[in-house]
Amino acid sequence: MSWTSFDTWIVVAGALCAVACALPGCFLVLRRMSMMGDAISHAVLPGLAAAFMITGSRTSLAMFIGAAAVGVLTALFTQWISRFGNVDRGAAMGIVFTTLFAIGLLMIRRAAGRVDLDPGCVLYGAIELTPLDTVALGPLEVPRVVVVMGMVLLLNLAMVGLLFKELRLSAFDPGLSDTLGFSSRLLHYLLMTVVAVTTVAAFEAVGSIIVIAMLIVPAGAALLLTHRLVPMLLIACGVAAVSSLMGHWLAIEVPSWFGMEATNSSGMMAVAAGLLFGMAWLFGREGGLVARLGRGARVSKEIDRAPRHGTEREESRPLP
């Protein structure tokens, strides 16, 4: 295979999307609302359609505002339905995002002909075409997607950097967060807004599949490898970036083994993330299957050799 600057830009665009998603994704996973990413990434559709119908253009700013509004609405509706309808949170989420997604589809169909918004494009994206749409950044011709995603990534980095302790506190103990004056609800909506904006930005470039995958899978893999929050964020970003590179390479290489043409890169990036998660699950130091089996064998050997009381072992075990 021949690697061109085209491929490099595709990988860079994919990696920027993936890392931008992985950061807020970690907090979604820790708040036990992984499905919220899935929900919001579908629910933003009417926001996009409305923004387009009102402004008549596909400028990023209008799209972002529409998406952010719907992101907050999704969180709000979910809360209302689960509280006043006495419905379980997951079910409430399902009701809200399917309804909003359907409304979005109807709006797009209604505007069909006048509108260049393709539902299929929303799902798969068109990452292979991103290097064609460039903007001049000084002397460099940079794909527009890379610029947009770079900015979104900076935004997410800034949020996590500035509000690190607040996000951690409200995810761990919302009650304490509220009593200390850090409104957990405010932080919840902020996180939802950020997820919505990231989703929309990444959508256009790489489609919703990779967005949903990158919100959750790197965070899940990182959680298997560490039990500290900062390393978790770093590992999640690493997994996200590596799956982008790996995914693109696999998309070109694997089909050629069977004499076929290269397949969809963003789809393969999501698959690569899944593979990395599987590896983390197998070989992880703490929660990994191999480590666990090994530890089991070691412990039973220890017990055979020197039978002691559990409490003593607990005390004598060195601190990690």
């Binding site: 302790k165 761990f172 304490l176 039990h227 500290r228």
Partner: peptide, 16 residues
């Protein structure tokens, strides 16, 4: 199971 250490949790008391 949250990824924090004992010290991290106690330090939350000083956030106010």
């Amino acid at each position: 199971d949250f990824p924090v250490s004992a010290l991290d949790v106690v330090a939350m008391g000083t956030y106010r």
